[in-house]
Simulated assay, not measured.
Amino acid sequence: MKAKKLTLCGMLTALAIVLSLVERLFPLDAVVPVPGVKLGLANVVTLFALTRLSARDALAVLLCRVALASLLMGSVTAFLFSLFGGLLSLAVMWLLLHAEGRFCSLLGVSVAGAAAHNIGQIAAAVIWMQTGAVVAYLPVLLVMSVPLGLVTGLTCSIVLSHMQKIDFNV
């Protein structure tokens, strides 16, 4: 059972890295004229891991994805921004998933995760740049987190519905 879970976490990490790479090939700049906005396809994997595995497994996938993606295509700042955003997003989504059905749907969890990711990245920017001026960009990012979080949540919802057809016991 441990080998199966470890293999699944490794596959999810690889998938998240591939999704990050694909996302870089098709920047949203042409469609959405907001600098720095990304679709967040790798967050589909984090949300999936939170719903189908444990928070601990989702954290492991997130940390491996952030570290490996930063080594492959990023920098120290990319690592810091992804780490802060990813950890805050994971924490918020984990908390809200416990309230799913009573408080919000999977789509709401995803939107909240997208917003938390942006807040985490702004926090990293404040620390890295040593100025609070970057907080002025937060409202723009929060507005963008709604449609992009909905896309991520809808994608995860579709994947989860298809996964129910497969024997997926970990």
Results as ranks from 00 to 15, higher is better:
V18R: 06
I166V: 15
A60Q: 12
R102K: 15
H98M: 14
Q121V: 12
A58I: 09
L142P: 00
L15Y: 08
L63Y: 04
L90Y: 01
K4H: 09
L138K: 11
F26A: 01
A136P: 08
M11C: 15
F168I: 14
A42R: 01
A125D: 06
R52I: 12
A114G: 07
A14E: 02
A91V: 14
L95V: 09
T155V: 15
K165W: 08
G108H: 01
K165V: 14
V32Y: 03
D167H: 11
V159I: 15
F48S: 00
S20I: 14
I166L: 08
L141Q: 12
L83G: 04
F81D: 05
L80D: 01
V111G: 08
M144L: 09
F48R: 02
S70K: 04
G74Q: 05
I119W: 05
L8H: 04
L148S: 02
V31L: 14
L62W: 02
L28I: 10
S110N: 12
L150Y: 12
F79I: 04
K2D: 09
T46W: 01
G74W: 00
L21E: 10
M163S: 09
S110M: 09
M93Y: 01
A3H: 15
S54A: 05
S54L: 08
N169R: 13
L63P: 10
G36M: 00
L148K: 06
K2L: 13
I127D: 07
Q130V: 14
S105T: 14
A58K: 01
